[in-house]
């Protein structure tokens, strides 16, 4: 049974990593082809750094996904706080349903529905070119928001509601108690939301395809237009670099997490030690006072 499950694991991971292996290999191809490997070279990495269109697209994508992630994290965190405090049942429910719509709808429907809105608004304002950075940013914030809200909300629910109350009893203004007490409590959720928003934006193709004009090209759109013509291995070289970056970030993240866990464990051990020390001390003191009592007798 154990051997069977191990074979199964290997097969599935081979399936999941086969295209990535192809990508890694072809990125070092000496030839022009994306199908036949002609020998090892770094040629495509060199060409990548000379290809200004691809580098522009990369820069555009970073600008877009960072701004979309920042804005959606701010609006989303505020929204989560608001939803958490909402007492009206139907209002809360309907806000949640609308929030979930972009997650439940297929991306293509979200994309074309936003495109129709932009086209209509653009015609109304008499613009000839209405799709560009602004429309992309709006679209990205829209599909990021539910992910931010859904990662912050559970943290607010878990938080002990008496802590901010205690802070206010001790003289904090409501605003101070929010920023100094509640915000640190829900920070992990906010960070998760931000990271998710950034990666979703960075990786998005379907919605961007419908909401970007010709003036502002993101990386995925650039790749799409290249694939329509013919692909050179430099796109694989770029993907390999992105893959390596993700891998390194994941390792750092896991390392930090493991370290913080270890520190927590050490703290817990220290607490136990401290407690036993205090116990010992108290026992000794009691013994001493007992002895004194007996002495006075």
């Amino acid at each position: 049974m154990k051997i069977l499950s191990r074979i199964y694991l290997i097969l599935i991971f081979a399936f999941l990593y086969a295209p990535i292996a192809v990508m890694l290999l072809i990125s070092f191809n000496a030839g022009e082809s994306t199908t036949q490997f002609m020998g090892f070279s770094l040629r495509w990495y060199r060409e990548l750094f000379r290809d200004s269109a691809t580098l522009d697209a990369l820069r555009n994508t970073v600008i877009l996904s960072v701004s979309a992630a920042v804005i959606s994290t701010v609006i989303g965190t505020m929204a989560a706080v608001g939803i958490d405090r909402m007492r009206t049942r139907w209002l809360r429910r309907s806000v949640m349903i609308v929030t979930n719509v972009p997650m439940m709808n297929p991306d293509i429907v979200t994309g074309i529905s936003l495109m129709l809105l932009f086209v209509f608004a653009g015609r109304l304002m008499g613009l000839s070119k209405y799709l560009g950075f602004t429309t992309l940013l709006i679209a990205h914030i829209t599909f990021n928001l539910p992910y931010v809200i859904l990662s912050v909300l559970p943290k607010l629910k878990q938080m002990n509601k008496h802590i901010p109350e205690a802070a206010q009893d001790l003289g904090c203004t409501p605003l101070q108690s929010f920023f100094r007490v509640e915000l640190p409590c829900i920070a992990p959720g906010i960070i998760t939301g931000f990271i998710m928003a950034f990666t979703l934006s960075f990786d998005d193709f379907v919605i961007s395809n419908f909401t970007s004009g010709t003036s502002f090209e993101t990386l995925t759109i650039h790749i799409y237009s290249m694939i329509k013509k013919s692909v050179k291995p430099d796109i694989y070289a770029l993907s390999t670099l992105i893959f390596a970056t993700v891998l390194i970030m994941l390792f750092i993240y896991n390392f930090l997490e493991a370290r913080s866990e270890r520190i927590e464990r050490m703290k817990a051990n220290a607490d136990i030690k401290m407690e036993s020390n205090i116990r010992k001390l108290m026992r000794r003191r009691r013994d001493k006072s007992d002895a004194q009592k007996q002495g006075t007798r």
Partner: peptide, 30 residues
């Protein structure tokens, strides 16, 4: 007062949802 302002924190998101989630779907219908 505090709970009013904190509930109002959801307002930007609600406006955003009406403009960019509900309105686009109405355009699909239209």
């Amino acid at each position: 007062k505090r709970s009013f302002w904190q509930r109002a924190a959801a307002a930007p998101h609600m406006v955003w949802s009406v403009l960019f989630i509900i309105a686009p779907l109405i355009f699909v219908l239209y």
